[in-house]
Design a protein around this nucleic acid. Sequence first.
RNA 1: GCCCCCAUCGUCUAGGGGACCAGGACGUGGCCCUUUCAAGGCCAAGACCGGGGUUCGAAUCCCCGUGGGGGCACCA
Length: 491
Amino acid sequence: MSSPARVRFAPSPTGRLHIGGARTALYDYLLARQTGGKFVIRIEDTDRMRFVPGAEAEIYAALSWLGMEWDEGPDIGGPYAPYRQSERTEIYLEHAKMLVDSDHAYYCFCTAERLATVRKEQQARKQAPRYDGLCRRLSPEEALDRKNAGESHVIRFKTPRQGKTTGIDAIRGEITVENASLDDYILLKSDGLPVYHLAAMVDDHLMEITHVLRTSEWLPTFPLHVLIYEAFDWEQPAWVHMSVLLNPSGKGKLSKRHGSGGAHAIYPIELKEAGYMPEAVVNWLALMGWSYDDRTEFFSMSDLIGKFSLAKLNASPAAVNFSKLDHFNGLHIRSLSEEDLASRLVPHFYAAEIEVTVAQLRPIVPLIQERSRTLDEAVEMSGFFFRDAVQPDPQQLIGKNMSPAESAAALARSIEVIQGFDRLDTESLELSLRKLSGDLDLKVGQLFGILRVAVTGQRVSPPLIETMEILGKELVLERLKQATELLESSK
RNA sequence: GCCCCCAUCGUCUAGGGGACCAGGACGUGGCCCUUUCAAGGCCAAGACCGGGGUUCGAAUCCCCGUGGGGGCACCA
């Protein structure tokens, strides 16, 4: 184990937390827990225009649901508070001024309009859009005068015009760019608030972040960040640029909605509502861009904490595969205790307007645990247990290769057989019904199929005999009779 | 247009010069089991982007091409 890592998840509250962000947070969390370090949350809310109320709350909710507890953050504080960038504005201003004083940055008075014009001209000339350096040439005295006169200004980084800058990425090694390809990026906006390039660097340093995990979208400006650290004469953290998540088609960055036919949720909170379990989502997310070996794929959070390693992170982008999430969810459902599964099912039954208790659910859990891939699927399959009545499709009450009359007769004979029981017990009930199918010269599947639809109202259900036992003699007879009538009246 | 990154089955990946006529998983197809659906078991199809090097030897190293992704805001 390496020395304790201080890692931060630093989302901006501009929208909902999606699975890409959740995966970044997961790797942060794993690294922190594995090394006995700290997992901190920092909210990067320096963009007032894009601020979305409620976004921060959902970030917390999603991380909590996924099982990642943080050690420091805006809501719980910590030794490096405040953790919300909008509450740290003086710090950034102070640091921006430090860079001006050391000649690593300068005041710029260009208006947005001028910049737009310059950019347009450059693009027309097929040149890379970049600041033309007008204010970089101002003398410090003149700049200070204009600034003191109250002229609106920003602070720009004085990117070296010559040479190259190299940064070390933990996944890919050296990343080198020509400084000339970098811009004199704005560090502090005219509203006095910092931009990511300044705020994140300052905070990462001040908060003593040891590993910066972010997506590869930051690779192009990575050398700039290295330069900023150098300008402050700070020690570089370990830089880790993870690959981005792609749409299932492999075309383009993961976007809000997509789908071949149906759309899948890309927000953890929606996944939760759709019946996926946090353990499965974590397992699934962990494997998008990271792997352990050539065969192990089932991981609990504590497995991951033990086995995660930056060295096994993959540099190439990964297309999201939702059918694999279904698979993992099934795996995790099956790994739960029956008691646990029952209690997790309760809210999903409520969502389907079926009010049940864990105790009521307990007996049916063994019947559905092996055959459900999502919690919602389990509800769909077993909802009939708790509904007052079922509505079978008359067409489905007709057995395979059978006439309606033959089906009705089979139903009638089944009723007789069941009436002979004091209480339904699986062993003898199965024996009796199998015998009946022989007597009727039917295949077991034909008879059971009819009974299944009659009793559950569904073609797909848990095993028939066990289902009947749980339903009980009275209810089974009632539904069987109802089905018979349905068959008669639809002739 | 410029810059950066990436490149193994449809998808996620193992592989870091000989152990590879390339392994696992999802998905797909088939079979078995079977009261439906699952689960489980077995089997099958399915990939090293192309071209040059380096080397006795390249999926693995280098170069070029191509393809894909990302970035080029007073967003993050």
